[in-house]
Structure formats: C-alpha cells, structure tokens
Design a protein around this nucleic acid. Sequence first.
DNA 1: AACGCAGCCAACCGCCAAAGA
DNA 2: TTCTTTGGCGGTTGGCTGCGT
Length: 304
Amino acid sequence: MSSSSSVDTKKGTWSKEEDEILKAYVENHGTRNWNEVSKNAGLIRCGKSCRLRWYNHLQPDVKKGPFSEEEETKVFVFYKKYGEFKWSKLAEELPGRSDNDIKNFWNARKRKLERRGLSPFPDNMELDDELNSSQQIEDSQEDEFHIPQLKFRKYPSIFDEINEKLLDVPNMFYNNIVGSTSTLIDRGSIIGTSYIPMAPPPPCSYLPPPMETQYHGDFMDPDFWLHNSSLDNDDARRVYLSETNFVDEKGKKPISLEDDVEANLLDDFMDPFLCIDFSNLEDDVEAGGRLFDNDDNRNLHDTI
DNA sequence: AACGCAGCCAACCGCCAAAGA
DNA sequence: TTCTTTGGCGGTTGGCTGCGT
C-alpha cells in the first residue's frame, strides 16, 4: 500500500489542531506532494488523508450546508447530459462542492426516494428526449452499461412484459445476468438506472456469450447467436464454459465463472442458458420499431 | 429518560492510471 | 522498458445527531 497502511498513521476524525497545522502548511508551501505535506507539517496522517481533508473541508472556497436548488438542478442536468454521474467532473461544475459532497447528496437522495418507491430524479425530468439525440447515444456507447438503459426507456410495454416475468427472480439474477440493480425490482418497474440486455431472440432469452466476451451485455451479441444457433444447449454450454473469458463489469479484472457463481451462491441463476418465455416480445418489437436503431440491433431484428 | 431507527456526512478502502525513478 | 510511488476516484463504512416511540 502506498500511503494508507502505515501502522504509524492516525485515522478517524480530524482535530481542530490538525486542521490548523495542515491549513497553515498548505497555504505556505502548497500541495505538490501530499506525503511530503504530511511529513513536513508534522502530522501523523497519511498523504491521502491530508489531501482529502484539504479538498473536502479546509480549502478556502469550500461550501457547506444543504444543496441549493440551482446546485441540485446542475446535478440532474449533468446526468441528462452524460447519462451517468462522474463525481469529480460534477465537482468542477459546482464550485465549492467536493466530489464527496455531491456523492453524499446523491446517495442520500437516491436512498430516501427509492425507499418510498420513487425515482430519485425530479418528476419534470424528461430523460428520453434528451437522450434521443444521436450525439447522446454515441456518447453513451463508451460505456456498454448505459446503451440498453437509453433504448429501453422508450418502451414501457417491453419493460412491463419483461419485468412481470422476472419479478420473482432474486436480485442477484438481475445483477449478474441482466445487469440491473436490486432497487428496481423492489420498485416493481424497470426505469431509471436499470440495464437489461438487448432484445433476446426466442426461444432462449439468455444466449451464450461470444467467445471474447467483455461484458455481460454481450450475451445478446447477434453474431454469436447466428453462428452458434446450430449447437444444442449441452454443446454450447461446453463451448461457453471452456472458451469464454470472464471479466468484471469494467471489462478489466479477470474472474472465473466458478468464483462468480460461488460468490453469488446462485448457480442456477448464473446459468446463461436459463430460458424465460418472451413469446410476446416479438409483437412488442414490431410495435416499438425504434428499438432496433443501430446495425447490431437490426441484425438481431432480422434474426427474430 | 431510554432506546431504536434513519439520515447525514466524514473518512477510509481498494483499484487504477499517471508520473517518476 | 519495468517497477515503484503518488494522486485521484468511486464505493462503502461507521459514527454522530435528531427524531419518534
């Protein structure tokens, strides 16, 4: 550990004296190296702790107290613009507020409202129109986990259909196969931060992923389905288990299927061949039309 | 007055990327 | 080019406080 595991460093709440020492040192010498700041100022804190204390509490323009209406609006506008929260970027747009402040604000709001079955977003916030622009969709494709969210929000009939069928499935099923969040299941409708794979071709809802799977989202890769549809389930399962490289949701950290399954204690629900009847989906797709608005999805549409 | 609970917020942890040696 | 250190970030935890019972 670079800076946080030393047995000599103090942890916990900062005292007034420590604050004054840190403030005086930073104002006189700056913050080029936080470990040096800690050492030279005579603090028994790690550099990271000093940095956090300075940026969140001690620097001159730091703002405390509840968020103003204007600040709240900026948070939501940011989400509208980028389709996700980046606390540090948001902090740049809210002078005086640290990323930690904004994160706390949002998490508290989210927890409170979702507990009541409400969306954490304001009632008058129309995400769909904004996200409908080609630029927004293009931006969102940098993160696989937001593409389905943007598209599926447009099709409440499909949401309801899918959700109705999955409501009884434990949360982990969503988290690992569908990729949604548990709070959505509690709410009983799929809106907000949910993520559901692209429209699954019948009869098997959850297809084997492509050989070079990077995300669970690739489960619905239409090419893979086209190339492997001749395999029976047992053969496809063997291919899937032996050749798939599992990684975490960010696509970086390798994980074994066994680890993942064991961690979640839900072997059955981790089964990518789990079949759920989406027999009505085709009608929904025809009715929705715009669901298939890029090349991959057009292929999928053809498949169906 | 005592207790439990929820909300808030400060702080920590672990991961990662950039910078430096 | 490789290894180490540092800073930055997001997720999470734990303590404090206020409120209701």
